[in-house]
Design a protein around this nucleic acid. Structure first.
Ligand SMILES: [Mn+2]
Ligand SMILES: [Mn+2]
Ligand SMILES: [Mn+2]
Ligand SMILES: [Mn+2]
Lengths: 219, 219
DNA sequence: TATAAAAGTTAGAATAATCTAATAATTATA
DNA sequence: TATAATTATTAGATTATTCTAACTTTTATA
């Protein structure tokens, strides 16, 4: 199959290519913490293998084959995170780095068993959808908290980035997935949000933080 | 830390060096399915890193440091096998290849959690002892079934080699760890054992098979 | 003990993944 | 649009791991 290295490139391409699916060599090199020439040669190799579309000086795009491969690795990553949280008792802020390694294990049975023990979950502990066995995955139409306005009531559904520090920050504010948040006001100067939720009558969230929270309108 | 490759060499050295602790380049190359010159250069590298004692044309021995590193990888392997069997529902014949990969994961927390969820087990699903966190491990004084004689009654405690085929063979004979075996007779010509156990009044075991079963005398 | 076989080593090459330095193309800016 | 900054590519080197072919040492055998 593909090497661990190649798999990490595919995953990064998938994650960076959100909308148009285009990724610059430069972005990719920042994401993977590798020099541009390193990434450049890997692009040629992945193109050779039919995993990406690549033309000199143009942004790179995953091929259908590449997309599917990437989604299947992301599936293993997210199933692992879910298993670590639900079946092993880890916190949602402790699982990413372990999953980063476990995702490369070659054993369909291993992940099938996780899936089964978890009852075929559809989302991971950070609210991200888990691709199905054919690599298909759909994001519900979530709205960033930062795009909501005073008076709105929303349910916190997912985080856009799941760095340990950010998740620990949310832990410290008792902001869990599923929490219903009322937006009291938005400071026009710096877009700081004043919100209430759970037993917190009034809490402040910077725009930076609010941008990373994906929510769903509550009627 | 050490590369996956280096870890696999250390483990093979540990497993092959049973008694005297000496391992020939040739044995190691067969075990790892690599050519001798490949192993030879790795021996120089491991010696450089202080993991083995190496002199030209002499068998290799793990250093104390190398022994400890190897034992800690074996600890991760065996904890993983135990976890797969006890917590995930795999059969003892399905776990080795998965553990062969999981053993390389770098996350003390991951294995500490397994250990805790398993209640700090002392043996793996094949009856092999699990080294402790400092790398110490002791084999009880088991006796190969092949070394027992007619009339002996023993308890099956461990297998010496845990290839899938052998374990499936034991499954098909309903020979599980813990089974009490009565030796009825031993054919002098080819050392075939005739035994009884569980609800099998009379079963035959070749010398080849009997050599791979470790047992304990029952008074 | 002389020869043959087996085991071990050396030399040199290949592949994967990475880097630095230099160069080229594209994009932004004055 | 000319120049500067950014982005991308090429060339060449490095490290890790493996290989084949040739040679050496040790061990077994006649
Ligand atoms: Mn993750
Ligand atoms: Mn990874
Ligand atoms: Mn095993
Ligand atoms: Mn291994």
């Amino acid at each position: 199959m593909y090497s661990q290295t190649e798999e990490n490139y595919l995953k990064a391409l998938f994650n960076l290519g959100n909308h148009k699916g285009e990724v610059n060599v430069n972005e990719l090199s920042r994401e993977l913490d590798l020099k541009m020439p390193t990434v450049n040669s890997m692009m040629k190799k992945l193109a050779e293998k039919g995993l990406i579309h690549y033309e000199s000086y143009k942004p790179v795009r995953l091929s259908e084959k590449g997309k599917k491969e990437a989604a299947l690795i992301i599936r293993k990553h997210r199933l692992t995170e879910m298993f670590l949280v639900e079946k092993m008792g880890f916190g949602w802020d402790e699982v990413h780095n372990i999953a980063e390694q476990v995702e490369h294990i070659q054993s369909p049975e291993f992940f099938a068993k996780m899936d089964e023990l978890l009852g075929f979950p559809k989302i991971d502990p950070h609210g991200s959808p888990i691709p199905d066995q054919s690599g298909k995955m759909a994001w519900p139409e979530y709205i960033k908290l930062s795009e909501c306005k005073a008076g709105d009531t929303v349910r916190f559904r997912a985080v856009t980035h799941s760095s340990d520090e950010f998740l620990k920050f949310l832990n410290s504010r008792e902001l869990l997935l599923g929490t219903i948040i009322h937006i009291q006001s938005v400071e026009p100067f710096d877009n700081t949000f004043t919100v209430s939720y759970g037993n917190r009558a009034s809490a402040m969230l910077s725009h930076i933080a609010a941008e990373k929270l994906l929510t769903e309108k509550v009627s």
